[in-house]
Amino acid sequence: MKTSRRRRYTEWLVTLPSLAWLVVLFVLPTLIVFAIAFKPANPYGGIGAGWTWSTLASLGNPNYPAIIWRTLWISTTTTVLCLLLGIPMAYFMAQLPPRRRQVFLLLVIIPFWTSFLVRIFAWKVLLHPDGLIKQALVALHLVDADASLLYNAGAVLLVMVYTYLPFAVLPIYAAAEKFEFALIEAARDLGASSWKAFRSIFLPGIRRGILTAFLMVFIPALGAYVIPDIVGGPHSEMIGNKIAQRTFVDRNLPHASALSVILTLAVLAPLTAGMLMQRKKDRHAVLHQEGL
């Protein structure tokens, strides 16, 4: 009893720095943002006195659903595409001999050596009407000479997938690296097709990695702002752009905060649901093991 209490104590002590970090740099600012959402705005960018519901009520504004819907579908599609590309990549990489594995890992990481912004501008050059990709597609009669590859939702999606793909590959790879590939062989020996072995043995085995990848892509994608701003067109505005407009152009911090609240809740709700479900499952598994 005593030792377990002491262990608890040291556990707390060890997590204290990261906990303090989280509280000071994440929880408090988020609470402040929540609080500002209930404050009135003044036209000079200040925050008025007293409290109001009107900002939150104004989110019923008919201009929002289109943007929220667009943000959701672009982020979801980005996440799905990143997972669809990331899982086979990780599956392949994890089975390579260690030396070649390092090379491939390096190739995934190399883009981070260049500024994120420079890489987005590079896409602008590639997709430029006189750029390589456009010229090639026109030569192959795949696109019209007048069609623009930039400034539409497709361009936003392409650059988002490009940007977030490493964030999907790395956690899935980390999980796949620990996966015991002999299990797949065993499944094959027992008569499973390779697809069935991949689906019923490999995928559940790297479940945690996939979940992490999902969160690492979906959450930043929801708040994307720079990518739709640079390669997006007049019809590809996302919530992030709206928040920027409220903050800078409209000088309306309460409004920007209210939108951020929506974004935070949109992230927290599925996360909490997922955690609760996981906990229920774990408890169920424990009960099962104890024969109850």
């Binding site: 008919p62 201009n63 929002y64 289109a66 943007i67 505005e237 407009q245 152009v249 409209d250």
Partner: peptide, 11 residues
Amino acid sequence: TKVWDQIKAAE
């Protein structure tokens, strides 16, 4: 601001 929002949201 209101008009600008309507412009940005319009299809």
